[in-house]
């Protein structure tokens, strides 16, 4: 167990290190001169040279990489070129928005998927199963940005139940929640369709196993068996997919925040790329990657919590 934790933690740290190298390398081989971008085309050669020196662009790559990582570990991601304020502050302001959206999307995904998937498995080869399969097929086929527009048209423009976009701020929690509903649904529907199918097939496989028959022979109702015996045993593939989907949800916020005008990291990264705001883009790409790697790390740990047999082997 201790060895398992050590190995997984080491893997986690090494992955983050590799990610940081790749992110740094990609950002720094991009064509274009950051100094020129900041000062504009009519800047003097002296001013450009001075700025390059100030930004540390003349240092060797390795020095700049170590410098970047060292500062980042201390919460300093440099100054945003386009906003002129520290990148850490920019991220700090927008992080709650994106995290709320991703977490509410994940919760919505998991609840909807488990109910649909287990429900379909319980009604295997009956109309309930077919209906679920049809709906989830539809959910997988519809692109999130198009679904967003349909949702806005129906619930905001026609029915006027929910705001079409924008964010009222956290001061009014009810208004904040209301502006999160449509983005959450748009973000999560595809993912929950995928997860519902995984849940269904995983549950069907477990339902064929002998211990389910034992539970039936012990006088348990089908419903009780589904939640007590089938679902826990079906969890390993479900958790694997959930980990991957959390990554998809976090990156999915880039599109959704732009469609719904939400002030989160997704919109920030979009603006920063348009403005060639290198420090901000670099920090955000690193952050998104770190979130994905962390999600996978947590999934690895969850396996052991779910299945005691892995603990013995781990």
């Amino acid at each position: 167990m201790g060895y398992f934790l050590f190995r997984r933690t080491l893997g986690f740290v090494l992955t983050l290190f590799a990610v940081s190298v790749v992110v740094f390398a990609v950002m720094n081989v991009l064509p274009g001169d950051p100094a020129l971008t900041i000062l504009g085309l009519d800047a003097t050669e002296d001013a450009l040279a001075a700025l390059r020196e100030q930004l540390g662009l003349n240092d060797p790559l390795l020095t700049r990489y170590v410098h970047w990582v060292w500062n980042a570990l201390h919460g300093d991601f440099g100054i945003s070129h386009s906003f002129g304020i520290p990148v850490a502050g920019l991220i700090g302001e927008r992080l709650p928005m994106t995290i709320s959206l991703a977490v509410s999307g994940m919760i919505f995904t998991v609840i909807l998927a488990l109910v649909m998937g287990i429900g379909a498995a319980a009604n295997h080869r009956k109309p309930g199963d077919w209906g679920m399969m049809f709906i989830s097929q539809l959910g997988i086929a519809i692109p999130a940005f198009w679904l967003s527009m349909l949702l806005v048209l129906l619930f905001a423009v026609k029915l006027r139940w929910l705001p079409p976009g924008g964010f009222a701020g956290w001061d009014d929690p009810v208004a904040a929640m209301r502006s999160l509903i449509l983005p959450t649904v748009a973000l999560a529907l595809v993912q929950s369709s995928v997860l519902a199918r995984v849940t269904r097939s995983s549950a069907l496989e477990v339902m064929r196993q002998d211990f389910v028959r034992t539970a039936r022979a012990t006088g348990f109702s089908r419903r009780r068996i589904l939640w007590r015996h089938v679902l826990p045993n079906a969890l390993v593939p479900i958790v694997t997919i959930v980990g991957m989907q959390f990554a998809a949800l976090v990156t999915g916020t880039i599109v959704i925040e732009n469609v719904f005008y939400l002030p989160g990291l997704g919109r920030l990264i979009f603006q920063s790329i348009s403005n060639r705001d290198l420090p901000t883009v670099q920090a955000l790409v690193m952050l998104f990657a770190a979130i994905v790697v962390t999600a996978n790390f947590i999934v690895d740990l969850l396996y052991v919590v779910i299945d005691p047999r892995l603990k013995a082997r781990a």
């Binding site: 196993q209 002998d210 211990f211 028959r213 034992t214 022979a217 015996h229 826990p232 045993n233 005691p308």
Partner: peptide
């Protein structure tokens, strides 16, 4: 049943 290896829920 016949197969004691699989007759019990492995997670309980």
């Amino acid at each position: 049943f016949q197969e004691p290896m699989t007759a019990l829920n492995p997670l309980r």
